[in-house]
């Protein structure tokens, strides 16, 4: 048997791809903060990313691979685990597990759908093709205008905030799982990592929702 086909190998792959996506989410979140510097800030940041050229596509390809591998592992773990208990208990009490741990597959599916929606919304401009035509004074793509217009209206704001709450649930279990799955925990550090993981998940939630919330309340406007 190859190591990556074993139950532990799948855990390692799950953990490493998960960490890569958490790090990406943190960088994405920090990148979003450039919107607080006004159109000049976020437009320059976006232009800088676009300026990477082939590097940008290499990065996107790597991220897509990580994303697909994580989904593939997650689904196969879920199916194998379902198969490992063919008949359910009539009564079962849980003492240690959490809502977020038990719903990983579902929060994962929702996040997968959300990421597709998000890319269609702000990268492909599938819902509003005219977003691509926004140009600022310096002839750069006007990301600031696109984001502020994108978050107009309650439904869109709600979708993004709800998706970030789902991300919170996924990461509240996922971050501490990374350390446990790679064997980086012991009796002294596991409780701290469990709490710390939830803490980081909350910080990521707040960091992401602050943009749609400030736009919704008109703090950031055109």
């Amino acid at each position: 048997m190859q190591w990556y086909k074993s139950s532990l190998g799948k855990k390692y792959i799950m953990a490493v791809t998960g960490l890569a996506m958490v790090l990406f989410a943190i960088v994405h979140m920090l990148g979003n903060f450039t919107i607080f510097a006004g159109p000049g800030g976020i437009n320059a940041y976006a232009a800088g990313l676009q300026g990477l050229g082939p590097g940008l596509w290499l990065f996107r390809l790597a991220l897509l691979t990580v994303f697909l591998v994580h989904i593939w592992m997650g689904v196969s773990l879920y199916l194998e685990n379902k198969a490992a208990r063919p008949s359910e208990y009539a009564m079962k009490q849980n003492h240690r597990t959490s809502f977020s741990a038990r719903t990983m597959i579902w929060t994962g599916v929702i996040l997968g759908a959300f990421i597709i929606f998000h890319v269609l919304h702000f990268t492909v401009h599938a819902f509003h093709p005219y977003y691509a035509t926004f140009v600022d004074a310096a002839q750069r793509h006007d990301v600031y205008r696109m984001v502020v217009m994108g978050f107009q209206g309650f439904p869109m704001t709600l979708i993004y905030i709800a998706a970030m709450v789902v991300l919170l649930l996924h990461l509240a279990h996922g971050i501490q799982s990374f350390f446990q799955s790679l064997g980086a925990t012991n009796d002294a550090t596991l409780p701290t990592l469990e709490k710390g993981g939830r803490g980081v998940a909350v910080v990521i939630l707040l960091g992401f929702v602050i943009v749609p919330i400030t736009i919704f309340f008109g703090v950031i406007r055109l």
Partner: peptide
Amino acid sequence: GFGNCTNHYE
């Protein structure tokens, strides 16, 4: 045919 650990700690 045991399942995989997903760190529930039950």
